[in-house]
């Protein structure tokens, strides 16, 4: 456990120290929130949504922020590989599972912090937190998204030689995961074939879970969302540790 803590500590320290990254990664979500939220607020009318369209996408944008931060945190071990620091960890008398878990928990922590910042900013844009339990549910779902997608990033990074493939992963894997997740649109009104794609996307359950926590209603039952997302997290951690165990430098 102390090893997992050590690696967690390094990740969090690095995150808090790089202010430019912290601020820079707020740009995109904030931009989407303002442009889409205010731009479409008057034209899009969602039945049963008191907060309007901007209220509807707030949980989606929070999920996006958590998603991107965590994938990036996982893929970061490629930097460690290139700058040589990974050797220092791999040659120590610790198991690779401990290293991988430390990295996953560390990445998830930074992702949740990033999500919480967007959540706080949303409060200024009209989000109202009605009760504490809803907030806790939202954080729990953010944590699950963070854990699963950091592990996902580690799995990818274990197979990548350098950062050249990063754009490819971003454009063909991460953006589709975000786009299909129901972060920006309600899944109930979709044509059947897109709807089934949406339901295959693990992030959908994260978005729906956070939406339930923050707005009090969702299209998917939160306990189902919780079970599916937890299952996905476990699978990703297992796959990530397996691939990380065979990483070569």
């Amino acid at each position: 456990m102390d090893i997992v803590y050590t690696i967690w500590l390094r990740n969090v320290k690095r995150y808090l120290r790089s202010k430019s990254r912290l601020v820079g990664s707020l740009g995109m979500p904030l931009f989407l929130l303002l442009v889409l939220g205010f731009g479409l607020n008057s034209v899009v009318v969602l039945p049963g949504m008191d907060q309007g369209y901007i209220g509807f996408i707030m949980p989606g944008i929070i999920s996006m922020s958590v998603l991107f931060t965590s994938v990036f945190a996982g893929i970061q071990i490629i930097w460690d590989k290139q700058f040589g620091f990974l050797k220092e960890t791999l040659v120590a008398p610790v198991s690779r599972l401990e290293i991988m878990l430390g990295q996953t928990v560390g990445g998830a922590t930074t992702a949740v912090i990033q999500g919480l910042i967007i959540l706080v900013l949303s409060l200024f844009l009209g989000l109202e937190l009605s009760n504490a339990s809803g907030f806790i549910i939202a954080v729990l779902f953010m944590l699950l998204i963070g854990l699963s997608f950091t592990a996902f990033g580690i799995a990818i990074a274990s197979r990548m030689e350098d950062m050249h493939g990063f754009q490819l992963i971003m454009n063909f894997v991460i953006f589709p995961i975000f786009g299909l997740s129901g972060a920006l649109f309600p899944i109930d009104g979709l044509p059947e074939w897109i709807r089934s794609l949406t339901l295959l996307d693990p992030l959908t359950y994260g978005v729906e879970g956070i939406r339930y926590g923050l707005l009090g209603s969702s299209q998917i039952d939160p306990s189902i969302s919780f079970m599916i997302l937890s299952g996905f997290t476990m699978i990703m951690v297992v796959v990530g540790s397996y691939l990380f165990r065979n990483i070569s430098i």
């Binding site: 102390d2 790089s18 700058f83 040589g84 620091f85």
Partner: peptide, 19 residues
């Protein structure tokens, strides 16, 4: 080189000691 440049020298040592 196998140091973490974003950490201080002491933190690099401390990380190693904990590992």
């Amino acid at each position: 080189q196998s140091l973490d440049e974003e950490l201080t020298a002491y933190e690099n040592m401390d990380f190693h000691g904990r590992l």
